[in-house]
Simulated scan of single mutants.
Amino acid sequence: MSTRLAAEGLSVVVNYATDGVAAKEAVTAITSAGGNAMAFQGDVADAQKMVALFDSAEAEYGGVDVVVNAAGRLELATVADLDLDVLDALHRTNIRGAFVVAQQAARRLRAGGSYLSFSTSVLGTQVPSYGPYVASKGAVEAITLILARELRGRDVTVNTVAPGPTATDLFLEGKTPEQIEALAKAPALERLGTPEDIARVVAFLTSPEGHWVNGQVLRANGGMV
Protein backbone atom coordinates (compact mmCIF):
# COMPACT_ATOMS: atom_id res chain seq x y z
CA MET A 1 0.00 0.00 0.00
CA SER A 2 2.78 2.45 0.87
CA THR A 3 4.57 1.72 -2.41
CA ARG A 4 1.36 2.34 -4.37
CA LEU A 5 0.80 5.68 -2.65
CA ALA A 6 4.41 6.62 -3.31
CA ALA A 7 3.89 5.74 -6.97
CA GLU A 8 1.02 8.26 -6.97
CA GLY A 9 3.54 10.94 -6.00
CA LEU A 10 3.12 11.05 -2.23
CA SER A 11 6.01 11.22 0.21
CA VAL A 12 5.37 8.44 2.70
CA VAL A 13 5.98 7.83 6.39
CA VAL A 14 5.76 4.08 7.09
CA ASN A 15 4.77 3.55 10.71
CA TYR A 16 5.36 0.19 12.36
CA ALA A 17 4.90 -1.28 15.83
CA THR A 18 7.34 -4.22 15.79
CA ASP A 19 8.21 -5.27 12.23
CA GLY A 20 10.99 -2.84 11.45
CA VAL A 21 12.39 -5.10 8.75
CA ALA A 22 9.21 -4.90 6.66
CA ALA A 23 8.98 -1.14 7.17
CA LYS A 24 12.58 -0.63 6.05
CA GLU A 25 11.99 -2.86 3.04
CA ALA A 26 9.04 -0.68 2.05
CA VAL A 27 11.13 2.47 2.47
CA THR A 28 13.93 0.97 0.36
CA ALA A 29 11.48 -0.04 -2.37
CA ILE A 30 10.06 3.47 -2.50
CA THR A 31 13.39 5.32 -2.46
CA SER A 32 14.92 2.93 -5.00
CA ALA A 33 12.09 3.86 -7.35
CA GLY A 34 12.83 7.55 -6.88
CA GLY A 35 10.24 8.31 -4.21
CA ASN A 36 10.50 9.83 -0.74
CA ALA A 37 9.91 7.71 2.36
CA MET A 38 10.93 7.29 5.96
CA ALA A 39 10.13 4.74 8.67
CA PHE A 40 8.83 5.53 12.15
CA GLN A 41 8.22 3.20 15.06
CA GLY A 42 5.13 3.82 17.15
CA ASP A 43 2.21 2.03 18.77
CA VAL A 44 -0.94 3.59 17.29
CA ALA A 45 -2.60 3.48 20.71
CA ASP A 46 0.19 5.57 22.26
CA ALA A 47 -0.94 9.19 21.93
CA GLN A 48 2.52 10.67 22.54
CA LYS A 49 4.07 8.42 19.89
CA MET A 50 1.44 9.42 17.35
CA VAL A 51 1.99 13.10 18.09
CA ALA A 52 5.68 12.49 17.43
CA LEU A 53 4.85 10.64 14.21
CA PHE A 54 2.80 13.51 12.85
CA ASP A 55 5.41 16.03 14.02
CA SER A 56 8.06 14.07 12.10
CA ALA A 57 5.93 13.99 8.95
CA GLU A 58 5.32 17.73 9.10
CA ALA A 59 8.98 18.49 9.79
CA GLU A 60 10.23 16.27 6.95
CA TYR A 61 7.62 16.98 4.29
CA GLY A 62 5.99 20.28 5.27
CA GLY A 63 2.52 19.00 6.12
CA VAL A 64 0.11 16.08 6.11
CA ASP A 65 -2.25 15.44 3.20
CA VAL A 66 -3.13 11.74 3.50
CA VAL A 67 -3.45 9.49 6.56
CA VAL A 68 -4.10 5.76 6.17
CA ASN A 69 -4.52 3.75 9.36
CA ALA A 70 -4.20 0.05 8.51
CA ALA A 71 -2.96 -1.07 11.94
CA GLY A 72 -4.99 -3.87 13.45
CA ARG A 73 -5.09 -7.05 15.50
CA LEU A 74 -7.16 -10.16 14.83
CA GLU A 75 -8.19 -12.63 17.53
CA LEU A 76 -10.69 -15.42 16.88
CA ALA A 77 -12.87 -16.81 19.68
CA THR A 78 -16.50 -17.36 20.42
CA VAL A 79 -18.18 -14.85 22.69
CA ALA A 80 -18.57 -17.54 25.34
CA ASP A 81 -14.88 -18.52 25.31
CA LEU A 82 -13.12 -15.19 24.77
CA ASP A 83 -10.42 -14.25 27.28
CA LEU A 84 -11.25 -10.69 28.29
CA ASP A 85 -7.57 -9.78 28.55
CA VAL A 86 -7.31 -10.69 24.86
CA LEU A 87 -10.34 -8.48 24.18
CA ASP A 88 -8.70 -5.55 25.96
CA ALA A 89 -5.48 -5.92 23.94
CA LEU A 90 -7.45 -6.21 20.68
CA HIS A 91 -9.52 -3.15 21.41
CA ARG A 92 -6.48 -1.16 22.51
CA THR A 93 -5.08 -1.39 19.00
CA ASN A 94 -8.26 -1.52 16.94
CA ILE A 95 -10.39 1.05 18.78
CA ARG A 96 -8.12 3.25 20.89
CA GLY A 97 -5.47 3.16 18.16
CA ALA A 98 -8.03 4.10 15.52
CA PHE A 99 -9.24 6.99 17.67
CA VAL A 100 -5.73 8.28 18.45
CA VAL A 101 -4.74 8.31 14.77
CA ALA A 102 -8.07 9.81 13.69
CA GLN A 103 -7.66 12.54 16.29
CA GLN A 104 -4.26 13.54 14.96
CA ALA A 105 -5.53 13.36 11.38
CA ALA A 106 -8.46 15.63 12.27
CA ARG A 107 -6.10 18.18 13.79
CA ARG A 108 -3.40 18.09 11.13
CA LEU A 109 -4.75 17.28 7.67
CA ARG A 110 -4.54 20.13 5.21
CA ALA A 111 -7.37 21.21 2.92
CA GLY A 112 -7.84 18.71 0.11
CA GLY A 113 -6.58 15.89 2.33
CA SER A 114 -7.94 12.44 3.12
CA TYR A 115 -8.19 10.16 6.12
CA LEU A 116 -8.76 6.45 5.54
CA SER A 117 -9.28 3.68 8.07
CA PHE A 118 -9.86 -0.05 7.75
CA SER A 119 -12.79 -2.23 8.75
CA THR A 120 -13.87 -5.67 7.53
CA SER A 121 -16.60 -7.18 5.38
CA VAL A 122 -17.13 -9.77 8.14
CA LEU A 123 -19.35 -7.11 9.71
CA GLY A 124 -21.92 -8.16 7.11
CA THR A 125 -21.16 -11.88 6.79
CA GLN A 126 -21.31 -12.49 10.57
CA VAL A 127 -18.91 -15.43 10.67
CA PRO A 128 -18.79 -17.18 14.09
CA SER A 129 -15.64 -16.62 16.18
CA TYR A 130 -15.05 -13.15 14.68
CA GLY A 131 -17.10 -11.41 17.41
CA PRO A 132 -14.29 -9.54 19.18
CA TYR A 133 -12.71 -8.41 15.92
CA VAL A 134 -16.00 -7.33 14.36
CA ALA A 135 -16.97 -5.43 17.51
CA SER A 136 -13.79 -3.39 17.20
CA LYS A 137 -14.30 -2.72 13.50
CA GLY A 138 -17.90 -1.64 14.08
CA ALA A 139 -16.43 1.06 16.31
CA VAL A 140 -13.99 2.07 13.56
CA GLU A 141 -16.84 2.51 11.09
CA ALA A 142 -18.82 4.61 13.56
CA ILE A 143 -15.82 6.86 14.30
CA THR A 144 -15.23 7.33 10.58
CA LEU A 145 -18.79 8.33 9.78
CA ILE A 146 -18.98 10.82 12.64
CA LEU A 147 -15.58 12.34 11.86
CA ALA A 148 -16.58 12.99 8.24
CA ARG A 149 -19.41 15.20 9.52
CA GLU A 150 -17.24 16.88 12.16
CA LEU A 151 -14.78 18.01 9.48
CA ARG A 152 -17.44 19.83 7.47
CA GLY A 153 -15.96 22.90 5.84
CA ARG A 154 -12.35 21.62 5.96
CA ASP A 155 -12.33 20.02 2.47
CA VAL A 156 -11.05 16.78 4.05
CA THR A 157 -12.55 13.39 3.20
CA VAL A 158 -12.98 10.58 5.73
CA ASN A 159 -13.72 7.05 4.58
CA THR A 160 -13.24 3.42 5.55
CA VAL A 161 -12.27 0.44 3.39
CA ALA A 162 -13.76 -2.88 4.51
CA PRO A 163 -11.95 -5.67 2.64
CA GLY A 164 -13.25 -9.18 2.23
CA PRO A 165 -10.95 -12.23 2.36
CA THR A 166 -7.53 -10.89 1.34
CA ALA A 167 -4.32 -12.89 1.10
CA THR A 168 -2.33 -11.11 3.78
CA ASP A 169 -0.20 -12.75 6.47
CA LEU A 170 -2.76 -11.68 9.10
CA PHE A 171 -5.59 -13.35 7.20
CA LEU A 172 -3.77 -16.56 6.26
CA GLU A 173 -2.26 -17.21 9.70
CA GLY A 174 -3.78 -20.26 11.42
CA LYS A 175 -6.05 -21.28 8.56
CA THR A 176 -5.97 -24.67 6.84
CA PRO A 177 -5.74 -24.95 3.03
CA GLU A 178 -9.36 -26.16 3.05
CA GLN A 179 -10.52 -23.09 4.98
CA ILE A 180 -8.62 -20.78 2.65
CA GLU A 181 -10.12 -22.49 -0.42
CA ALA A 182 -13.65 -22.15 0.99
CA LEU A 183 -13.12 -18.47 1.78
CA ALA A 184 -11.70 -17.86 -1.69
CA LYS A 185 -14.97 -19.10 -3.19
CA ALA A 186 -17.15 -16.82 -1.07
CA PRO A 187 -16.89 -13.69 -3.26
CA ALA A 188 -18.73 -13.65 -6.57
CA LEU A 189 -15.34 -13.21 -8.27
CA GLU A 190 -14.31 -16.56 -6.69
CA ARG A 191 -10.84 -15.65 -5.45
CA LEU A 192 -9.12 -14.07 -2.52
CA GLY A 193 -8.38 -10.40 -2.76
CA THR A 194 -4.77 -9.34 -3.01
CA PRO A 195 -2.96 -6.52 -1.23
CA GLU A 196 -2.70 -4.86 -4.65
CA ASP A 197 -6.51 -4.92 -5.01
CA ILE A 198 -6.88 -3.05 -1.75
CA ALA A 199 -3.99 -0.69 -2.50
CA ARG A 200 -5.77 0.41 -5.69
CA VAL A 201 -8.90 1.24 -3.68
CA VAL A 202 -6.84 3.20 -1.16
CA ALA A 203 -5.06 5.08 -3.95
CA PHE A 204 -8.39 6.08 -5.49
CA LEU A 205 -10.03 7.23 -2.25
CA THR A 206 -7.02 9.34 -1.29
CA SER A 207 -6.60 10.87 -4.77
CA PRO A 208 -8.22 13.97 -6.27
CA GLU A 209 -10.32 11.61 -8.43
CA GLY A 210 -11.86 10.07 -5.31
CA HIS A 211 -12.34 13.29 -3.37
CA TRP A 212 -16.11 13.40 -3.90
CA VAL A 213 -16.44 10.15 -1.92
CA ASN A 214 -16.79 11.13 1.74
CA GLY A 215 -18.26 9.60 4.89
CA GLN A 216 -18.52 6.15 3.32
CA VAL A 217 -17.63 2.54 4.10
CA LEU A 218 -16.48 0.84 0.90
CA ARG A 219 -16.75 -2.96 1.06
CA ALA A 220 -13.96 -4.03 -1.27
CA ASN A 221 -14.70 -7.76 -1.27
CA GLY A 222 -15.19 -9.10 -4.79
CA GLY A 223 -18.95 -9.34 -4.41
CA MET A 224 -19.50 -11.07 -1.07
CA VAL A 225 -23.08 -11.17 0.16
Score class of each variant (00 low, 15 high):
L116D: 07
G35Y: 06
G62W: 09
L172W: 06
F99T: 06
T18W: 06
V68R: 09
E181L: 11
A199H: 03
R108T: 15
A71R: 09
R96L: 15
V213Y: 02
Q104G: 03
A47M: 00
T168S: 07
S121N: 11
M38D: 01
V86A: 00
A139E: 04
T78N: 08
P128C: 04
A77Q: 01
A71L: 12
F40C: 11
L192S: 04
S207N: 06
N15R: 14
L192Y: 01
A57V: 09
L189F: 05
G113S: 04
T28S: 12
L151Q: 09
A80P: 02
T28L: 05
V68K: 13
T31K: 13
A220K: 09
Y115K: 07
R4E: 13
A102W: 01
E58M: 13
G9K: 08
R110I: 07
N221F: 09
E25H: 14
V213P: 02
V161G: 02
G164L: 11
F99N: 09
T18Y: 07
G72H: 12
Q126M: 14
R73Q: 02
T176I: 06
W212G: 04
G210F: 07
L145Q: 07
A52D: 15
Q48V: 14
A26W: 01
R154S: 06
V51Y: 07
V21L: 07
S11G: 15
G35C: 12
P163C: 12
N159W: 01
V140A: 04
V127K: 11
P195L: 10
A135V: 07
G215R: 08
G164N: 10
T176K: 11
L53I: 10
A22N: 10
F54L: 07
G215D: 05
M224H: 08
T157H: 03
T28W: 02
V225A: 11
V79T: 14
P132H: 00
D85R: 00
A59G: 13
I180F: 04
T31M: 05
L109P: 07
H211F: 05
K175C: 00
A45S: 14
I146S: 13
G164E: 03
D19A: 10
S136T: 04
D19T: 05
S121E: 11
Y115T: 03
Q126G: 05
A135M: 12
T31F: 01
A106R: 12
D83H: 02
V79Y: 05
